[in-house]
């Protein structure tokens, strides 16, 4: 009987102790006490990287022209050559639009075909970085912020037998995530 009484009293005492720890100390009628309420945000939503990219390219037609003159020198039995070579382009740009939820890098490379290894190609921008499309509008003006363009220029020499449009090389666009 004594043990039961002791145990009961111990529980009652403990209950009072724990209540008093959270009790507000209001000493007068109509008094106020502020109690802090705490909260925290925990994001457990998995967001997968989704890549969505538009790539547009022009006709990529280039002309290697040679202008000038050849004057026959009868005394020396040879031509006096005065020539200038130049490349001109039509539709030589590549445009990349990033609709992804991550930032991307687009890298441009030109590789000459074996039969036309004398033709070189360089881009005015070897690579471009485009921000993610999160929060970007879909109207034309907004899309400019996630759009980049690079232009290809050809150089070197082309065989004078290539008088019709012929494939001389290939373009590769490499897309990777920007961390």
């Amino acid at each position: 009987m004594k043990k039961i009484l002791t145990l009961t009293l111990a529980f009652v005492f403990l209950a009072f102790v724990s209540v008093s720890a959270f009790a507000a100390d209001i000493t007068s009628n109509g008094g106020e006490e502020e109690i802090d309420v705490q909260a925290k945000y925990e994001n457990n939503v998995e967001t997968a990287d989704v890549y969505s990219v538009d790539i547009t390219w022009g006709a990529m037609e280039f002309t290697h022209s040679v202008d000038g003159s050849r004057v026959w020198n009868a005394d020396e039995h040879r031509y006096i050559v005065s020539e200038t070579e130049a490349w001109s382009a039509s539709g030589n740009t590549i445009t990349v639009v990033n609709h992804s939820n991550v930032s991307i890098k687009a890298q441009f490379t030109y590789t000459a075909d074996t039969a036309h290894s004398g033709v070189t190609g360089t881009f005015d921008k070897a690579n471009i970085t485009l921000p993610s499309a999160v929060g970007v509008g879909t109207d034309a003006e907004s899309l400019k912020t996630v759009t980049g363009t690079a232009a290809l220029t050809l150089g070197g020499t082309l065989a004078n037998s290539t008088t019709t449009l012929t494939r001389v090389g290939k373009i590769k666009v490499t897309i990777s995530k920007v961390n």
Binding site: A48, D54, W57, G91
Partner: peptide
């Protein structure tokens, strides 16, 4: 459809890495 100049091309790509 996307727009492209004559002789050119245009593609959209959607993928997971």
């Amino acid at each position: 459809k996307l727009e492209a100049d004559e002789g050119g091309g245009a593609v959209g790509l959607t993928f997971s890495d």
